[in-house]
Design a protein around this nucleic acid. Structure first.
Length: 359
DNA sequence: AATGAAGCCAACCGCTCTCTG
DNA sequence: TCAGAGAGCGGTTGGCTTCAT
């Protein structure tokens, strides 16, 4: 059994550490018969040599009958990411919108999976904004070489070709899109950062002169957009000759221009004003719903006045095979429902307002 | 097959919040 | 209004499992 080992200091004669099946049974039996009542009094009444707090945690995090165990679904994952963007590390608040999941479980899932996932996508898991730290640039040479090897001969190794398509998509889509997002963020940093990168940071870029790096990056983006989008039946739009002028929103339907208000891609969910994420068209930045026949917005970055953005689930949407095998999956429906539920919840709504007021 | 590193997650710690008298 | 007790919460720990070498 996992968990902490029994503490050597069993002060008060109370047991610590992993629970035995026998202890679990005693706790369940007692609560089913009497309810938990006072947690402090419970251990004695239930015949357990534990402190009340330990009993409460064991019950709420593990023994409760409505606990849903097992892998988090994509929908749950998406909800967590979006709620975290608004609520931060308010695990219990997040847990209230994921029936059957405990705050502890969500916290663990965030720390072990989602945090890394966002980092790999070039997103700061704390601010939910693109990472702008220059250490991020250290990955650029690897990204570029990976991109080059991947697309070195697209005609002979078309990632979207034939029978390998769905398998490749299944295994590569997330990774490729994450890379794409990361590169997108890098371009954004290079293009818009008022802070000139230091020479030390630029050295991370490798031996190529900066303008060549830029060209490589530009070329990679062009190729990536062409193959990936064409593979999904999405027409591509020529890139501007200057990467600084890349029309992100149109070139990468999945990548919302960090500088521009989002148009036509998002649909409002709930009262966008509440989130301070609305633009003049009334589109809010939280409910990212993909347009039909376009990639879902992977990341929606707010403009300078905005505080949060949304990472939308992408794997299933990116994966045509999933479209076939699992057509019922609908991020927008579930997501909208989740937010609707969130907004319908008075307490949650209040906490949202409070949180946003603090921002 | 052996070993070390990394991942995972149940459980604990200590602080904060809420309730009650 | 205040103090104490109980409950709740987020952060952290550390042992087991899995993966990589």
């Amino acid at each position: 059994m996992m968990g902490r080992s029994p503490s050597s200091s069993e002060e008060n004669g109370l047991k610590k550490g992993p629970w035995t099946p026998e202890e679990d049974r005693k706790l369940i039996d007692y609560i089913e018969r009497n309810g938990h009542g006072s947690w402090r009094a419970l251990p004695k009444l239930a015949g357990l040599n534990r402190c009340g707090k330990s009993c409460r945690l064991r019950w709420t995090n593990y023994l409760r009958p409505d606990i849903k165990r097992g892998k988090f679904s994509d929908e749950e994952e998406q909800i967590i990411i979006n709620l975290h963007a608004v609520l931060g590390n308010k695990w219990s608040a997040i847990a209230t919108h994921l029936p059957g999941r405990t705050d502890n479980e969500i916290k663990n899932f965030w720390n072990t999976h989602l945090k890394k996932k966002l980092l790999q996508m070039g997103i700061d898991p704390v601010t939910h904004r693109p990472r702008t730290d220059l250490s991020l640039l250290a990955n650029l040479p690897q990204l570029l070489s990976a991109a080059a090897s991947h697309f070195v001969n697209p005609m002979n190794n078309n990632p979207w070709d034939n029978n390998s398509l769905s398998l490749r998509l299944h295994t590569d889509a997330t990774q490729q899109l994450a890379k794409l997002q990361l590169l997108h963020n890098i371009v954004h940093v290079l293009s818009t950062s008022p802070v000139t990168p230091t020479m030390e940071a630029l050295n991370h870029l490798g031996t190529l002169p900066l303008h060549d790096q830029h060209d490589h990056l530009h070329e990679y983006l062009r190729m990536n957009s062409q193959f990936e989008l064409e593979g999904l039946g999405i027409s591509t739009i020529n890139l501007a000759s200057n990467p600084n002028q890349i029309p992100y929103s149109s070139t990468f339907p999945s990548l919302i221009d960090v500088n521009q208000p989002t148009h036509n891609v998002h649909q409002p969910i709930g009262n966008s004003k509440v989130f301070n994420g609305d633009d003049s068209d009334g589109n809010d930045q939280f409910g990212a719903i993909p347009k039909e026949n376009s990639l879902p917005p992977l990341v929606s970055v707010l403009d300078s006045t905005d505080q949060c953005f949304t990472v939308n689930r992408m794997e299933n949407k990116m994966n045509p095979s999933d479209h076939i095998s699992n057509p019922s999956t609908s991020t927008s429906t579930t997501f909208g429902g989740a937010w609707g539920e969130l907004l319908d919840d008075d307490d949650a709504g209040d906490s949202f307002l409070l949180d946003l007021q603090r921002l």
